[in-house]
C-alpha cells in the first residue's frame, strides 16, 4: 500500500461559471453552403461542445451552460445547468433576427443566475455571454442601447461578452456592441471573431478549452489562440 491509499481529500462545493450561448436561429442560418447549412454545423458543434465538457470532470462540475435562441422571437432553449443535467438541443432555423432582444435575454439570464449564486453563497467566476450570429439585427432593434448595456456590464465586470460573426454577419455592427474589459491593469478591446460555418466544430473545441481555464482559476489572458478565426495564421 502506498501513501496515496491513505490520503483523503474533502468534497468542497465547486465554484460555478455560467456560459450563456445566445444563438441566431433566423432563416439565413438554414442557407445551404458547401459544408452544410450553418444551423446543422451549429448543432453538431453544440453536441461536440457538450461532449467535451462532459469528458473534463473538473469543468463539468463547474460550468453551467444556458442557451438562448433568437429569430422572430426569443426562446430560452436551455436554462442554466451542468452538462450532466441536460442533452444538447437540436435547433432549427426560420424567421428574422431579433438579435438585440436575444442578447438582452442572455444578459438578464446571467444576472439572475449571479444573484442566485450570491443568495445561496456559491462562489462564482465572471459569466460569459457568447453571441453567435450570421446576420444583422432586424430594423428597429435598439443596437445603440444594447451597446451601452454591454459596455456598462463589461466595465462593471458583470460578464464577459464575446461576439462571433458567422460568414455573412454584419461585423461592423458586432464591433459596435463588442465592448472591452480590464484585466491585470490593462484594458482589452473585444473584437468580433469571424467564423466560417464549417469551423463551428473547431470553435466549440476552443470555447470548451477556454472556459475550462476561465472556470478554474485563470482568466482571459491565458486563453488559447482562436485558430478557428477567419484569416488566422498560426
Amino acid at each position: 500500500m502506498s501513501i496515496s491509499d491513505f490520503i483523503e481529500t474533502p468534497d468542497n462545493y465547486e465554484q460555478k461559471t455560467i456560459c450563456c450561448l445566445v444563438v441566431d436561429v433566423s432563416g439565413s442560418m438554414a442557407t445551404l453552403n458547401p459544408g452544410g447549412s450553418p444551423i446543422n454545423q451549429l448543432n453538431q458543434g453544440l453536441s461536440q461542445f457538450h461532449a467535451e465538457i462532459h469528458e473534463d470532470n473538473a469543468t463539468a462540475n463547474r460550468l453551467e451552460i444556458a442557451i438562448v435562441a433568437f429569430s422572430d422571437s426569443v426562446e430560452i432553449v436551455q436554462a442554466p445547468a451542468l452538462v450532466d443535467h441536460f442533452s444538447p438541443p437540436v435547433l432549427s432555423a426560420k424567421g428574422s433576427t431579433k438579435l438585440v432582444d436575444g442578447v438582452r435575454a442572455g444578459i438578464a439570464l446571467v444576472q439572475a443566475r449571479k444573484q442566485y449564486y450570491k443568495n445561496t453563497g456559491q462562489p462564482y467566476n465572471r459569466p460569459w455571454i457568447v453571441l453567435i450570429t450570421d446576420g444583422a439585427p432586424d430594423t428597429g432593434q435598439d443596437v445603440i442601447g444594447l451597446a451601452q448595456e454591454i459596455a456598462t456590464g463589461m466595465a462593471e465586470k458583470d460578464f464577459l461578452f464575446l461576439p462571433i460573426g458567422v460568414t455573412g454577419a454584419n461585423l461592423q455592427m458586432l464591433e459596435s456592441i463588442a465592448g472591452s474589459y480590464s484585466e491585470g491593469g490593462r484594458t482589452h478591446k473585444v473584437s468580433p471573431l469571424p467564423l466560417e460555418s464549417a469551423k463551428f466544430s473547431e470553435f466549440f473545441k476552443w470555447l470548451s478549452a477556454s472556459i475550462a481555464i476561465a472556470s478554474s482559476d485563470e482568466n482571459e489572458s491565458n486563453l488559447p489562440m482562436p485558430t478557428w478565426m477567419t484569416g488566422y495564421k498560426n
Partner: peptide, 22 residues
C-alpha cells in the same frame, strides 16, 4: 486548497436546496 482544505460546504438541510457556507 480544494484538496487540502474544507472551503465550501453545502449546509442546507434539504436535498433540493443549496446553502453554501464559506
Amino acid at each position: 486548497e480544494n484538496f487540502a482544505f474544507l472551503t465550501h460546504v453545502n449546509t442546507s438541510k434539504t436535498a433540493d436546496q443549496i446553502k453554501i457556507e464559506d
